[in-house]
């Protein structure tokens, strides 16, 4: 564990708490892509099956349990509790175009051709693109509530912090995880446009609005 990874994970944790806070206080999931959230559940379930057979640490275990349970809870909030506030007509990104290629990539690129390893690879590839329906929705509507942009910023920061973590681990442990690194770089790159608007507008006190 190093500080980059710790702060990355905390930022990931914070992003989920921000999202829960947004849904609970506004009593609405307006502006949140159900597809992205459903993809995250898929990612966590596929990746954290090792919860049952591989012990890393109490920290690792608790985080995995939190990520799986909170992401499922968010789906419940969106589909059941605050269902009327979710508008599927603007959440139109075709998630199957993401899942299909990720399955294929995972079958080709994995550390061992076993069920858990292929699932792990699949989850890494899927996570890297899972935010696309959300970003697509943002692009479509052209604006977002400030709290939603904080959620995305925390999520993006988590990804960005994993990069110095890998550099650190390369020098301190000689460990490189090429699948995680390449997918992670792609994932972080997807946030570049968002961060540009976030830094130049939201953090200056303006509303998140994309130029028409």
């Amino acid at each position: 564990m190093n500080l980059f990874r710790l702060f990355g994970d905390l930022s990931h944790l914070a992003s989920i708490l921000i999202l829960l806070h947004k849904i609970q206080t506004t009593r609405s999931c307006r502006g949140i892509s159900f597809k992205t959230q459903a993809l995250y559940v898929t990612v966590f379930v596929a990746r954290y099956l090792d919860l049952f057979y591989d012990w890393v640490s109490l920290y690792n275990f608790s985080m995995k349990v939190f990520f799986i349970s909170s992401s499922i809870y968010i789906l419940y909030l969106m589909k059941v509790r605050f269902r009327p506030t979710h508008d599927p007509s603007i959440d139109t990104f075709r998630a199957e175009y993401l899942v299909g290629p990720c399955v294929v990539l995972a079958l080709i690129f994995n550390y061992k051709f076993t069920f858990p390893e292929v699932l792990w690879s699949f989850s890494i590839f899927l996570e890297s693109v899972a935010i696309l329906p959300q970003l697509f929705m943002l692009q479509r509507t052209g604006e977002a509530e400030t709290i939603t942009t904080h959620y995305l910023a925390a999520l993006g920061a988590y990804r960005a912090l994993y990069i110095p973590n890998w550099i650190y681990r390369y020098f301190s442990e000689g460990v490189v995880d090429p699948i995680a690194v390449i997918a992670g770089l792609v994932q972080t790159a997807l946030y570049v446009d968002f961060f540009y608007v976030y830094f130049t507008k939201v953090l200056q006190g303006q509303k998140f609005e994309l130029p028409a």
Partner: peptide
Amino acid sequence: TPREGHHDEL
């Protein structure tokens, strides 16, 4: 590469 079957990152 990481030890197979053991992924310590979240």
